[in-house]
Amino acid sequence: MTRRLECRTALITGSTRNIGRSIALAFGAEGAHVIVSGRDDSRGQAVVDQIRADGGKADFVHADLDGTAAASRSLATAASDLLGGRIDILVNNAGIYPPATTLTADDAMVDRVYAVNVKAPFFLAQAVAPEMVAAGGGVIINLGSWVARLSVPIGALYASTKGALETLTRAWAAEFGPQGVRVNAVSPGVIADPELNLDHPAYALMHGTPAGRAGEPAAIAAAAVYLASDDAAFVHGTVVDVDGGRAGVAVLANPVAFQAA
């Protein structure tokens, strides 16, 4: 590792499993003191233990981000205290995806998904950005999704929240960038999840892409490390697609026949 995040501090929401876990491990390996956060204490502690075993620094903070400003402020305060009074990097990774259509989503589901996926990151940025400005700078990284731009028939609710977060990425870059806080996002494609069966229909969504398969969490972590590091010092308000080409490229089954037509 190049230790690109040496002496930095980072709070990563939803970092007890899969993409968030991979980002936490990568940040720890790159030298950051990482706050792992989430609702599952045992999983969170396991991530912390792994980072420490690999020679890094990490602590766990239990967090149930319910969309209230109080919950986000509480997490930010607890993380800042453990990190010596500052958070250099905030990664808004926590999110939920109910497999519902527009017609089956009820009031409670809509409120819950917007609370976790939009309001919690909004209030975390509200809590953390001023401290970053006061400290001379910082980085906020949001997790978007390819379905915010290339829609599928199930998941309108989730897609709309990720669209909101990608819009906030640009708005926050405009608001906080001139004050030294860089704000960007990573937009994953379908990412392999050990808790899903290999025949899960989500994986079929990557057919017809250049990659032709689901990605690995480490690919998202690598993009997050880049955006958090000084290598991305001139990158503001950008959504980095790490999706195997899903949102931007169509692969033809028979390009020769297409050319002939």
Rank of each mutant, 00 (worst) to 15 (best):
T2R: 11
R4E: 11
L5A: 10
C7Y: 13
R8M: 09
R8L: 09
T9W: 10
L11D: 02
I12Y: 04
S15A: 14
S15D: 10
T16F: 08
R17E: 11
R17D: 14
G20V: 09
S22W: 07
L25I: 12
A26R: 12
F27S: 06
E30W: 12
E30I: 13
G31P: 07
H33V: 00
V34R: 04
V36Y: 06
D41Q: 09
D41M: 00
R43G: 15
R43W: 10
Q45M: 14
A46V: 03
D49G: 05
I51P: 09
R52K: 12
G55Y: 06
G55T: 09
K57F: 05
D59W: 04
H62T: 15
R73I: 10
S74V: 00
A76L: 02
T77R: 12
A78V: 11
A79D: 04
D81K: 13
L83P: 04
G85E: 09
R86F: 02
I87W: 03
I87M: 00
D88R: 05
I89N: 09
I89W: 08
L90D: 00
V91R: 06
V91P: 06
V91I: 14
Y97F: 15
P98Q: 03
T102S: 13
L103T: 13
L103P: 00
A105P: 00
A105W: 05
D107Y: 07
A108P: 01
D111I: 13
D111M: 09
R112F: 08
V113G: 05
A115C: 04
A120N: 02
A120Y: 05
P121Q: 07
Q126N: 08
Q126M: 08
V128Y: 04
A129H: 06
E131F: 00
E131D: 11
M132N: 10
M132P: 07
A134L: 08
I140Y: 02
I141Q: 01
N142H: 11
G144D: 01
S145P: 08
W146D: 04
W146E: 09
A148G: 12
L150H: 14
V152I: 13
G155H: 08
Y158C: 00
Y158I: 08
A159G: 10
S160P: 06
T161I: 05
K162G: 11
G163I: 11
G163E: 01
A171G: 01
W172V: 01
A173Y: 02
A173G: 12
A174F: 07
A174Q: 14
G177F: 12
P178H: 11
G180P: 04
G180M: 05
V181W: 03
R182C: 05
N184W: 03
N184F: 04
A185L: 01
V186E: 03
P188M: 08
P188K: 12
D193N: 15
P194S: 12
P194R: 13
E195C: 02
P201V: 07
A204I: 02
A204G: 13
M206Q: 15
M206Y: 04
G212D: 03
G212L: 09
G212E: 01
A219E: 15
A221F: 07
A223F: 08
D230E: 15
F234G: 00
F234I: 03
G237R: 09
D243S: 09
G244Q: 01
R246Y: 12
A247C: 05
L252A: 14
A253D: 14
A253Y: 04
V256N: 03
F258E: 10
A260Q: 14
A260N: 15
A260L: 14
